[in-house]
């Protein structure tokens, strides 16, 4: 942890951070506990059981939904982050671009429309142009609303970055692409990573827009979960959520080990 003799150290910030992570993980602990519940209720404890994991693994619908969600989130994240990075670079580094605030406004436009409106509008639009690409429809819709979530952290990072390094690099290599590849992008990486992660979780969680633009055979996990309206959430959902959590923890651990090796 940060040393007290570090000049940047501020008292209390470590406790806030600890509180923050407790706050973030408290519901998850409950979630995991109740995935082992014996009864059908997702909120009243009645004994330990692995029944719901067995059920979740035997449930084709829930698995298909999970797979669809992951595919969509990965593609939408890649598309949105790539486009957002290019746009952010152009807007903050290219002096030839005029009307920057107009372009900036267009980029965060998807944020400003209530989701249900985007959903209905996109559905109407897709059917007007006869777009029918299966999962592709959802990927397009997700890429659109993920752009601002990817763009804002990247832009924030670029605005805070020291341009003198890039200027020096241009003197050294005197090639725009080398500067971009060797200096700007590596410096920008934390912003890109933040943006990509935001885009990913936004896509993974989206319900209304997906529900509206989904075609036959493209049910995603949120649709599956949300439409349990009539009967309530079962521990089966907790079980599949716990499995997903496990997967993400694995990824984090792998990332950590890779990082350490370096």
């Amino acid at each position: 942890m940060t040393q007290k003799n570090d000049i940047r150290w501020l008292p209390g910030f470590n406790w806030v951070t600890l509180f923050f992570f407790l706050f973030l993980y408290l519901p998850l602990i409950i979630l995991v506990v109740f995935s082992f519940n014996a009864s059908r209720s997702a909120t009243v404890w009645s004994g330990f059981s692995l029944e719901w994991y067995v059920k979740a693994f035997a449930n084709d619908d829930i698995q298909r939904a999970t797979k669809n969600s992951l595919i969509i989130a990965v593609f939408a994240t890649v598309f949105a982050t790539t486009m957002a990075t290019m746009a952010a670079l152009a807007l903050s580094r290219n002096r030839a671009v005029k009307n920057k605030s107009l372009f900036g406004g267009v980029l965060i436009l998807p944020l400003m429309v209530p989701e249900i409106v985007t959903a209905v509008a996109t559905l109407t639009f897709f059917s007007a142009i006869g777009l029918s690409l299966g999962l592709g429809n959802i990927i397009i819709a997700h890429s659109v609303f993920c752009i601002p979530f990817a763009y804002l952290p990247i832009r924030a990072r670029l605005d805070g970055m020291d341009e003198s390094l890039e200027a020096a690099a241009r003197d050294l290599y005197s090639n725009k692409w080398d500067t971009l590849r060797l200096i700007t992008l590596p410096l920008l990486m934390p912003g890109i990573l933040s943006g990509a992660m935001l885009a990913f979780i936004i896509s993974l969680d989206d319900f209304i827009i997906t529900l509206m633009v989904a075609e036959a055979g493209s049910t995603t996990l949120p649709i599956y979960i949300y439409s349990l309206v009539r009967v309530g959430i079962t521990p089966e959902v907790n079980a599949i959520s716990t499995v997903l959590l496990g997967v993400s923890v694995l990824i984090v651990t792998a990332a950590y080990l890779v990082e350490k090796k370096k």
Binding site: V120, M212, T219, I223, Y224, S227
Partner: peptide, 23 residues
Amino acid sequence: VTLDTYDSNETLLAKLQSGATGY
């Protein structure tokens, strides 16, 4: 059989009104 799900009659209505969706 492929099973997809929805949450309300209104959703079903809006989707069918928007044209063929393959169900």
